[in-house]
């Protein structure tokens, strides 16, 4: 699977054509994973999924069981900040937040709850619809991302997002995490830890929640009927935030 995908990517699907000089030869060498003299391939030992393009057969989603989410716990929030290198500047109005705990209270009944809210990775994301350059996009596997190479910083996606999930980078940043590039003048939001997913790991918040939190967050493939998340959403009632908008978010909540 791995080498097959790689072959296809390197030759057939390649949009890259720098010069006619010796490039195809170089590519063929690379594709065959043979080490020509002077050519060293680094890191070929990574897991197979890192080299494969994502597929729409998968739809990543999350089920958050609020019955196990402690009101005072914000392990998911701090794990996210640590993983993605989010640092505050002491300016709460402009500091970025990819995931936050929201306290809700029903004024009629007095019921109250605290729940984590992040990008809901909608099937029909308004942020993607409104983005003029197509920088805001949905990956084949359902993860909604900002391509910061084409984001012009117009913030229209922030106007369109019903979940207040996006932040604008208001200042110059330094020493970002290599796997989480982010910079001044572009919009960003929860990536569902796409770099982890691409190497078969779970999002940092989910990991932290099961390690030190209440184990409320379950991550998995909503398209796979055999996955744990699919079984749970099939057997128990779950809710989406603002389901009335018809956006079909990939993040679902139990006991909301």
């Amino acid at each position: 699977m791995s080498s097959k995908t790689k072959d296809k990517k390197m030759t057939g699907n390649s949009g890259f054509d720098p010069t006619r000089r010796s490039f195809l030869a170089a590519m063929a060498t690379a594709a065959g994973v043979t080490l020509a003299p002077g050519v060293v391939l680094y890191g070929i030992s990574r897991s197979s999924s890192a080299n494969a393009a994502v597929s729409s057969e998968v739809r990543w989603g999350m089920l958050i069981d609020l019955g196990r989410c402690d009101n005072g716990c914000d392990d998911c929030v701090s794990a996210c900040a640590k993983e993605n290198g989010l640092r505050g500047f002491g300016r709460p109005e402009t500091d970025a937040q990819w995931i936050r705990k929201v306290d809700i209270k029903n004024p009629e009944t007095g019921y109250s709850k605290s729940l984590p809210v992040m990008c809901q990775h909608c099937e029909n994301p308004p942020c993607v619809d409104v983005c003029p350059t197509g920088a805001s996009f949905k990956r084949a596997d359902g993860i909604v991302l900002v391509n910061k190479h084409t984001c012009i910083g117009c913030r229209y996606c922030m106007m369109a997002c019903p979940y207040k999930a996006r932040s604008f980078v208001h200042e110059t940043l330094e020493d970002q995490k290599p796997h989480a590039p982010r910079g001044k003048g572009t919009v960003e939001s929860c990536t569902l830890c796409v770099h982890r997913i691409d190497s078969d790991r779970q999002p940092a918040c989910v990991e932290a929640c099961s390690d030190t939190g209440g184990g409320a967050m379950l991550f998995g493939d909503l398209n796979d009927p055999e996955s744990e998340i699919s079984k749970r959403v099939a057997n128990y009632a779950s809710q989406q935030i603002r389901a009335d908008l018809g956006l079909n978010p990939g993040v679902r909540y139990r006991n909301l």
Partner: peptide, 20 residues
Amino acid sequence: LGRPDRLIVAMTSYNFKSIF
């Protein structure tokens, strides 16, 4: 704009579902 230096991107890369 957050990145006015990328005006060229706005002029060359379009998402036709966007009213913008």
